[in-house]
Structures are given as C-alpha cells and as structure tokens.
Simulated scan of single mutants.
Amino acid sequence: MNYTSNIYTHWKQAKGAIALTLMAIFLPACNYNEPQAITPATPQQQRNQVSREVVDNEIAEVTDKTDELIGKTVTIRTQPIRLIGPTSFTVNDKELFDSQNILVINATGKPFTLPSTNDIPLQITGQVRRFDLAKINQDYKLDLQSEYYSDYDDQPVIVAKSLALSPNPGELTANPSAYYGKKLTVTGEVENISSAIAYTLDEDKFFGGEDLLILHTKSQPRVKQGEQVTVSGVLRPLVIAELERDYNLTWDSNLRKQLAAKYRNQPVLIVTN
C-alpha cells in the first residue's frame, strides 16, 4: 500500500480534489494544562468523509503505520477532540482508533478558530512526524512550550500546513450566515449539473438542509452525476452583480439567468482554483 499521498476514510476510489491552504488555528487564552473537551458528536457526525484527492489509506494508519508515514504528507478529515496548547489539538475517530488520539500542531502561521463543537469536521493536511519538541520548533520556526506536551514525546503528530473547516453541504444551506466569507472545504455528491462550472452537492443527511450550489470561476473538467467530490472555496450569497465584479466571471447569459432565477441570494461556494 502506498503511504506517500493523502489519507481519508471510506471511499477508496475518489479521484482528486481542489485543495485550499487555509488559516491556522488561533485559540483563546485558557488553561491548557486542563485540556478542554469539545462537545461530543453523534456517531453519524463522527464518520469521516470522501475526497477526490488520491487516497489509499485510512486515518487509523497514522497510528498503525507511523513508521512508514514518517516524513510523508497526509490529509485527513475528522472532528477535533480537545485543545492541548495555544496552537495544537487532538483528533480521533472511535470507529478507526482504539484509544489513541493524534496530536495536530498548527504550523501555518495564520490564525484559525476551531469550531465550538466537534460536529463540524476539519480538513487537515500536514507532515507526519514523531513528536520531538526541540526539532519541531526548529524545523517549523515555532515556539511550542514543553508544559503542554509532556505526554506526547515520541508519539505520532501531524504538523499541519493547511487547516480548513469542512462542514456538510446541508449545514451550509441551513445556516449560511455562520459561514459567509469563510474559506471552506466541502465534500458531497454531484447533482443538478448546469454547466462545467456550476452544479450542486447533494445533501440528504442534514435535517433542514438543501443542496449546495458550487460555482467555479474558471473552466474545469466536467464533473459526473453522482460523483463524490471535495471542493474548496469561499461561501457567499448569490448576488450576481457582486460576483461578476469580484471574480470577473465570463459565464454565458443563459447560465447567468438560470442561476439568478433559481438561487438568488442563496448560499454558493465560490471555487477560485
């Protein structure tokens, strides 16, 4: 099995993804010597999602196959468990791990706020290493303090170069105001293909949620009906004039009219890459 690429669960045949480097974690001041538990998610919410990136491994292998993964870059999608230090937290998945949590350290250099509960997954991309405080501080120009990490010496750690909120499509359509203007990574099943740059992601699991409109600002290979994809971008309300102004869109007039009539002021994920 090839461990040189990204890691996800469940769907092994996913084809590729549009990655997005997002902001890193910035946590409010608190007593990190007593890690703060995040509200547990339901079993349904704990399930990891699919990616179009090349995937061959499961998140569990970050612990099970650590020796083979050391130095490799992985991508996982999972819920945060608890805060450890000002720039670190742990992740886990009860269906795949026994009891060991994986430490994740922010090395992006940008602020990022964890969700208040762990029912919203994160997409994390970073290098797998064994924890060595001095070496990680040196290699990534960090200032990690030993008081937070005494239990993690020589344990597997993901040094994150990309962190993104990764809510389900239905969460975004049911509660868009909480996500407007934020950079997100979203996974779902393709439906209602209007063109090569516009389609929706199906949401049949989130109560009150509707399908999410995806709009690419540049031409791309056409997706297929029913295909599982992961896309990254910024959530905005569909205001045609503002989107044309901000992204220099060159869509045809029929598509413009179609989207304006059906999705006016509805949430849309704008994908720029």
Rank of each mutant, 00 (worst) to 15 (best):
Y179L: 11
G16H: 09
G170T: 10
Y8L: 05
E34Q: 11
T230F: 00
L165K: 13
V229A: 05
T108E: 07
L259N: 02
E34D: 05
P111G: 03
I102N: 04
L215H: 11
N33K: 13
T272C: 06
Y8S: 07
V268G: 01
A24S: 15
G233E: 02
E191I: 04
Q45W: 00
S177L: 10
N265I: 02
T113E: 14
W251N: 13
N248T: 14
I240V: 12
L96C: 07
R77S: 12
I193V: 09
Q145G: 01
I25M: 13
D151R: 14
Q220A: 11
Q13M: 07
V50F: 02
K262A: 11
T117S: 15
T217F: 07
L165F: 10
S150V: 14
L27G: 00
F207W: 06
K182M: 09
D154I: 06
K12S: 14
A37M: 10
G181M: 01
L215E: 09
M23F: 08
Q127R: 11
G208C: 03
V159S: 02
I105F: 03
G126L: 02
G226M: 12
A19G: 04
D93V: 02
V186P: 00
L20W: 00
Q36D: 03
A178C: 01
S194H: 09
T21L: 11
V268R: 01
A14M: 12
G170K: 10
L103N: 07
S5N: 11
I25H: 06
N137E: 02
I59E: 01
D154Q: 15
N2Y: 06
L243H: 03
G208K: 10
L122I: 08
R129D: 04
I18N: 08
T185R: 04
E244C: 07
G233Y: 04
M1S: 11
Q46R: 12
A19D: 08
T90S: 13
N31E: 08
T75M: 09
V157C: 05
T75R: 10
R52Y: 00
R256K: 14
T90A: 09
I124Q: 06
T4H: 11
D56Y: 09
Q220M: 13
V186Q: 02
A260L: 05
G208E: 05
R47C: 06
N248C: 07
V229L: 13
E61C: 05
D204Q: 14
D154C: 06
V231D: 08
T200F: 10
Y148T: 01
V54P: 00
G71N: 05
Y180D: 02
E58K: 03
Q46P: 00
Q228A: 11
A107Y: 01
P115F: 07
L184C: 00
T117F: 10
G226W: 09
P121S: 14
Y152F: 15
L212H: 02
P80I: 07
S162I: 06
